[in-house]
Design a protein around this nucleic acid. Structure first.
Length: 351
DNA sequence: CCTCAAATGTAAATTACATCA
DNA sequence: GTTGATGTAATTTACATTTGA
């Protein structure tokens, strides 16, 4: 619901901004405004959901083109060589595997996070015995496929896939994976149980996420080993983490758009006031504010001073006159036809 | 090369569980 | 003890891209 609200906010903002920018462009003939604003906004919007898959756009880091100071604490791009530096071993306390008898550190581990043990006394943070197969990188691909099939309800295909594997060992590992998933469910008595990650686990995951927001299979299984979790759990955590990051970013974008909208509203108000002033000033004389007003060209160039926001009068550099203003958010408006570059203020021409 | 289907990875949406006030 | 809100792990679905025949 939150995300929906945000999207509505953003869409509303876009509509408002588009209307305002269009109006501004009509008077200023400066597409730069619309281009620069909507270039970034549309990216942000398109990647914010609507059921659309915008992976292509998302390949680049979000909001890089916003040219705005957003939360830059986001993840760095995935670097393949991450594994080259040996991962820090998390000082995890021993976790008892279901196959193991309680070790000495077992109670300590559980003391850290009681949430690992669910109401039925089942430790949700434990790796099932049979999931050892996932330690093997080469077992990852078939297991993924099997997971995918299981997830998509194509269980009938799983047997076929298992039997289709060239290596009998690999096949065995794949089937083990399936059975481990099944036994997982049977073991706990219901279809879905939730573990609660410990602080240490979360911290390491966060740390890893800061380095790269996506994991390759090797990184995934390595991290899973370190955390004593299943690779799938690490994968899920990263998926959810990316989703959270994106949601936060959307909220930031939304806030920004609101401010941008307010700023443009104010700018619009001010410009309208300027129009009124100019009209009063030049009663009977030509006016150049907008073609919509159907006024002839003036004799002099009118420039908006960015500091005092007053009109400065000077000699026209060419026959075509222009009005240039810079608004509060740093967007420049110019009425010069075909001008798409930002209109730079000319201090000398101003007050 | 081109085509096509299967494999794969991810985003988005959703569900469901655990916790807390 | 119950309930509603909240956070988040886990699942499902759809789609884009890659890969191999």
């Amino acid at each position: 619901m939150q995300i929906t609200d945000n999207r509505e906010h953003i869409l509303l903002g876009v509509q408002t901004l588009r209307a305002m920018a269009t109006a501004a462009c009509r008077t200023s003939s400066s597409p730069s405004v619309e281009l620069s604003i909507f270039g970034c906004i549309s990216n942000s919007i398109s990647s914010s959901g609507n059921g659309m898959d915008n992976r292509t756009a998302n390949r680049s880091e979000p909001s890089e083109d916003l040219n705005l100071v957003l939360s830059s604490s986001g993840p760095k791009p995935l670097i393949e060589s991450t594994l080259e530096s040996p991962p820090k071993q998390l000082d995890l306390l021993p976790v008892r595997s279901p196959c193991q008898k309680p070790a000495e550190g077992y109670s300590r581990w559980n003391a850290i996070s009681d949430a690992h043990v669910n109401s039925k006394g089942i430790d949700m943070n434990q790796i099932p015995c049979s999931s050892e197969s996932e330690d093997e990188d080469e077992a990852e691909a078939p297991s993924l496929k099997l997971r995918s099939l299981a997830g998509e309800g194509k269980r009938s295909e799983m047997a076929a896939l298992g039997s289709g594997m060239a290596d009998p060992g690999e096949r065995e590992r794949g089937l083990l994976e399936v059975s481990s998933r099944n036994s997982d469910e049977e073991e706990s008595g219901s279809a879905r149980k939730k573990l609660r990650l410990s602080k240490e686990q979360s911290a390491l995951l966060e740390e890893s996420f800061k380095e790269h927001s996506t994991l390759n299979p090797k990184q995934k299984s390595l991290l899973a080993k370190q955390l004593n979790l299943r690779p799938r759990q690490v994968e899920v955590w990263f998926q959810n983490r990316r989703a959270r990051t994106k949601l936060k970013q959307t909220e930031v974008d939304c806030e920004l758009l609101k401010r941008c909208c307010e700023s443009l509203t104010e700018e619009n108000r001010r410009l309208q006031k300027e129009v009124a002033e100019l009209r009063a000033l030049k009663v009977g004389a030509p006016c150049v504010i907008s073609r919509d007003f159907c006024m002839p060209l003036p004799a002099a160039t009118l420039t908006m001073c960015p500091s005092c926001e007053r009109l400065a009068h000077g000699q026209p550099p060419s026959t075509s006159a222009s009005i240039t203003t810079t608004n509060a958010v740093g967007l420049s408006f110019s009425n010069k036809p075909g001008s798409i570059r930002p209109a730079l203020p000319s201090p000398s021409a101003a007050c």
